[in-house]
Design a protein around this nucleic acid. Structure first.
Lengths: 114, 114
DNA sequence: CCAGACTGTAACGGACTCGAAACAACCTCA
DNA sequence: TGAGGTTGTTTCGAGTCCGTTACAGTCTGG
């Protein structure tokens, strides 16, 4: 599939979706948090803190803190890797899947109406 | 133009663009700041603090602070309304236009490669 | 002319984030 | 076994952002 977007259309799409996120009741996630969340749900497991930090080009504490926050919101969960107990495996949750499903709907609806 | 995006495509697009923003050297703007910036550049002037706050569904201090931050980055500028000196008119800048042009390119390029 | 309404901003306390560094737990391999 | 490397987390000080409240400047209608 090839999708061509003019400058104005691309920015309008971004604006509309951002607006929907701001207006949402839930506390808005930062760009970094959204990026981590999407990586977890779009790429194949397993996901570790180290891998995520590398992929995003940020430090490990940033990932730890983002996981703390999103863990409280039940968007992700953590489990020790029993094979190598130094690792922490980041896992998906039902709430996280629903959150992203809604986000995809928002994006899709605004893209459709361009 | 009608653009149809599957769930996975929509989320991949969002992920890729968010990743580009995180990896960028410049300090990443919050969702709210991006939303305000886009409103200023996409909708017709004049823009006041009050109008922006209303459109985003946030309080006026939130807008003032966002303008402070983006003003330091020279993405927007402020000027007193001489007709009604209570108002502050928010104006576009060259840097802000370039910033959004780059953002649109990023979105467009990732949309094209879906 | 001036009380009241309306602007945008400053002040406050609390919560959060950042990067850097230190840390504790764990593995590995000689 | 134990030294050294690797994991994720915690701590630290500094900075930011939040919502609420209070404020100073400006307009306006009686």
């Amino acid at each position: 599939m090839s999708v061509a977007l003019s400058t104005a259309h691309a920015l309008t799409l971004w604006h509309d979706v951002a607006l929907a996120m701001v207006r949402d009741d839930e506390p808005d996630l930062s760009i970094r948090q959204v990026c981590i969340l999407l990586t977890i749900y779009l790429e194949a497991p397993p996901h570790t803190v180290r891998d995520l930090a590398k992929k995003l080009g940020v430090t490990k504490p940033v990932v730890t803190r983002a996981l703390d926050t999103m863990g409280k919101l039940e968007l992700v969960s953590r489990r020790r890797d029993e094979k190598d107990r130094r690792n922490v495996l980041i896992q998906r949750t039902v709430k996280g899947a629903l959150y992203l499903e809604r986000l995809a709907d928002t994006i899709g609806n605004h893209a459709k109406s361009l």
